[in-house]
Design a binder for these strands. Sequence first.
DNA 1: GCCAACGTTGGC
DNA 2: GCCAACGTTGGC
Length: 159
Amino acid sequence: MTGERHFWLFKTEPSCFSFADLQARPDGTEHWDGVRNFQARNYLRDEIGVGDGVLVYHSNIPEPAVVGVAVVVKAGYPDFTARNPRNVHFDLKSTVDRPIWYMVDIRAERPFYRPVSLAELKGHPGLAGMVLLQRSRLSVQPVTPEQWSIIFRLGSGAE
DNA sequence: GCCAACGTTGGC
DNA sequence: GCCAACGTTGGC
């Protein structure tokens, strides 16, 4: 078995790829490709493990929000879109021998009963330390177990 | 659409 | 290796 379970928040623009799109994939599973930021890459390559929990966050919309939960089903491996010249995320510097960019596979577990908006996250005293609220641009970011349980409860309609 | 934040690039 | 210029992100 692997080590303890960790928690993450993945951002996506729903006009590009939404939680519903993830659910619509076979078995609700898709690779999380296209991340082109080194810090996020390091998490994908080195730290995110099978079984870890993922909060899926919709950005760049009128009311940005966490909209659902997913689980990691495959740990970091080279992002093949970096090697496709016709892909928008193509990167000439990434090779088979020396891949630069990585991705993981996630599977949709369930949509939230209600979206938990950015405004709500900002307003919750227990969430002041969230990376999202301090380095909003980081597209793959760690979430503490405490933050996870607060957001999970909010999204489950328990509060 | 604006613009602040911030990551990346490239000249030196 | 510094840092200015530039490009992108993403809330508003």
